[in-house]
Computed example of a mutant assay.
Amino acid sequence: MADFDLHKFLINDQPYTFLFEVVVRVLIAYIVVFTFLKISGRRGVQQLSLFEVVVILTLGSASGDVTFYDDVPVLPVILVFVILLLLYRLTTWAMTKSSWFSTLIEGEVVTLIAEGKYVSENLDRLNISEDEFLMELRLKGAEHLGQIRLGLVEVDGQLSLYFYPDEEVRAGLSVLPEAHRQCFTQIPETGLYACNRCGTTQEIPRYEERKCHECGRNTWSLALNKKRV
């Protein structure tokens, strides 16, 4: 077994004076990334578009390399920053001139819930698990879809909900996890049930097995009609 080399373990073949250079490199990288965020005019990560996230990751990769490796010069990283900034400005300008290009870069708002049920054709467009989406609805204060007049997935992935007033709340699919709501393929008691896939409500008689006329699925939960608390 080779002897343990503490110097190599801590700093490899660099002199300890390189630690001061690391401090300077980190400071430069920090200023470059901060300056980009400042110039871009954004206040937080949630406000970043997909394009801006790509720019930040690219800049972060370049600044990370210059931080740790002594053979990576600083000037190319500054050039990367300048090019990315120009690319960002060019892209944002093109987005103001073309709605098609803006949609291509940032995406579009997706209507996911309308009039108390899911918009079926938009369900498969979203890269999100059912459990994660139901969690988002619960965190927004919804107990069932019948409370929601309109649900939009914004271009940044955030969920915007517009609720019915209490007097207009209708029966809808529960957004509770399956551990807190029963699901049936054969209906145990006659009543109003909601399709677990799209939220469509139907009056179904006892012991019947029925497919949803909207999406063709056959799993149901008892529809809720509670008002918001």
Score class of each variant (00 low, 15 high):
F9Y: 12
L10E: 05
L10F: 12
L10M: 15
N12Q: 15
D13G: 12
P15R: 14
T17R: 09
T17D: 06
L19K: 13
E21C: 05
E21Y: 09
E21M: 13
V22Y: 04
V24Y: 07
R25D: 06
R25A: 09
L27Q: 11
I28G: 00
Y30D: 03
Y30V: 01
V32K: 03
V33N: 08
V33S: 02
V33L: 05
F36K: 00
F36R: 01
L37V: 05
I39M: 13
I39Q: 03
S40Y: 02
G41D: 10
R42T: 10
R42W: 00
R43H: 07
G44P: 04
V45L: 12
Q46C: 01
L48K: 10
L50V: 10
V54P: 04
V54A: 14
V54Q: 02
V55G: 00
I56T: 05
I56F: 09
I56R: 06
L57M: 04
T58P: 05
L59V: 00
S61W: 08
S61G: 14
S63M: 09
G64Y: 03
G64L: 08
G64M: 01
G64A: 13
D65R: 12
V66R: 04
T67F: 09
Y69G: 01
Y69T: 12
D70V: 13
V72G: 01
V72E: 06
P76Q: 06
V77D: 06
I78N: 01
V80S: 02
F81V: 06
I83D: 02
I83A: 08
L85T: 07
Y88W: 14
R89V: 05
L90I: 15
L90C: 15
T91V: 15
T91F: 04
T92M: 11
A94Q: 11
M95Y: 03
M95W: 02
T96P: 07
T96G: 15
T96H: 11
S102K: 14
S102H: 15
L104N: 08
I105Y: 08
E106D: 12
E108F: 12
V110S: 02
V110P: 00
V110N: 04
K117L: 10
Y118D: 02
Y118A: 00
Y118R: 01
S120Q: 13
N122S: 01
N122E: 01
R125A: 10
R125Y: 02
N127G: 13
I128R: 10
S129D: 15
E130Q: 08
